[in-house]
Amino acid sequence: MEPMLQDKFKLAGIKHQDADNVSRSGLSFWQDVMTRFYKNKLAMIGLVLLIGLVFMAIFGPHMTGHDYRTNNLSQKNLAPSAEHWFGTDDLGRDVFTRTWEGARISLLIGVSAALIDLLIGVIWGGIAAYRGGRTDEVMMRFADVLYGVPYLLLAILFMVVLGQSLTTMILAMTITGWINMARIVRGEVLSLKNREYILAARTLGAGMSRIMRKHLIPNTMGPILVTMTLTVPTAIFTESFLSYLGLGLSPPLASWGTMASDGLPAIKYYPWRLFFPAAFICLTIFAFNVIGDGLRDALDPKLRK
């Protein structure tokens, strides 16, 4: 049979081994992703905005020499000026300082909510998908039921029972927030767990932990990252919304939400008290959203050249 094979198939072109000599350095997957991300103008604007916001959240409160919590009733409701860049509020506090103090809290809430969602969601969704069968059914049914409960009701319940604080706020944010992450991770793992490279690892004798570390986690990183980036603005918005309903943080703590809700009644006379926090809520949500979208596009293998 062998000679037959030899003369049935002739090597037409160059020898295989020579063809490889045009060597170029290999780009790693993440280098590839970042190159595509950097080419996305909108996402880059978002990134610059975000870096600016974080910078101001760190240094802003110390820039003017005003304190975010000290009342000064002789200076209330002043319009923006050289002394008070964003004006003052009804208790004479500097709005500029309070805005960046609020940025800290809003970002803290957004990022912690995203991290908690990540932790619970990855474990929940990962186990459900990898185990499959009944485990999967029970775990995901539970998530579905929880998802069906009106979110606001749960949040109010939390606030009333546990008292209004930053921790309660973050907790309330994540009661149902992780479900989205769990669903995404589950979908990813489901589609990956029968991928041939995972089967190959299993036939080589790889254990559960090696498969998780080397194969499942690196390959689900992308969608997880995108979901996280999109969770942050949702959490920030939810916080503002809850604060607006009077369920937010208690004074003198400032978040963008509480500032906006305090500023609303005076919108006719002192519009800056609402304008600045509201504008930064919008900017932050915009920044995270375009970064998330940019990441999603950069990670999409179909756009790979």
Partner: peptide
């Protein structure tokens, strides 16, 4: 582990059978 070494498999889909991140 002994069996894992004795038997191996080559897969059909050259795109799905290699981990893209390794």
């Amino acid at each position: 582990k002994k069996f894992n070494r004795k038997m191996q498999m080559i897969f059909q889909d050259p795109y799905a059978s290699l981990n893209p991140r390794m």
